[in-house]
Amino acid sequence: MKLMQELDKVYYFMKRDIISFSTYKTNILLSIVSALFGALSYAFWGANASMPSVQNLGMPVVTYLLIGLAFNTYLSQSLTLVQRTINPWSLEEVLVSPTGLVTFIVGSSLWGFIWSTLVIVIYLAVGVFAFGVILSINIIGTIIVVGLGIGTFIGFSMIGAGVLILTKQGDPVTTIITLATNLFGNVLFPISVMPLPLQIISFFVPQYYFFTCIRPMLIGQTIGTILPDLGILALMCAIILPVGYLAYSWCLKMARKNGTLSWF
């Protein structure tokens, strides 16, 4: 009887979680899509590891992968910076203070950026000292590319945070951007290994331009070599950043209007 009683409790714990989980429909869908896309990304890498396009990257494979992984981590951090500020309770406390939205976003994100930058230094240091990766950094070029990348991703992050304020769990924007980065972003493999229709998608993804630009800057090439791609990245940043701000403001306004700001 005691066992049945305990099993009954276990059942109700599980039922509680299923009901709660089922209310976050967006999250359920995104989990499934993430699994499919994640598998696809590594399948491309594995299937093409020995192909000439992967062997002929213009730099050693380890350098290519190291920069891809290090900056992918950096962008992933940037992508969730604004979302991580959405603690519903402290959000209310901040919103009742005479503090503007821009100050709130910048102030809440700054340490995250600094920490992510330190992490990237660790990544690169491990590559240099443990794997003999040779880097020759074009400092100005790197700052420009990283600045544009961060601007773009902060824009995405604000859109994602806005959606999260409305959906409460499961932010499709962040998930889609992460998936798109892994698959179409030139992170782990050059897009030339993918079928043509997928390659075309890459050209609409800012991550592709970011990774196409950052690698040459870390192996000592000049800004002139990346100018066309850098221009497109700058244009995307100029569009996505303000759109992100407007989207975030609008979603915040809606949550306040509906009284759902602290419903997490």
Binding site: W89, S90, E93, V94, S97, P98, T99
Partner: peptide, 24 residues
Amino acid sequence: VGERGFFWRLSGYSNLEFFAAINN
């Protein structure tokens, strides 16, 4: 539920320091 708006790993003083700053 005001206490949930605090930062639990900070001291009372550090919490107020933050809120003092954002309250001008």
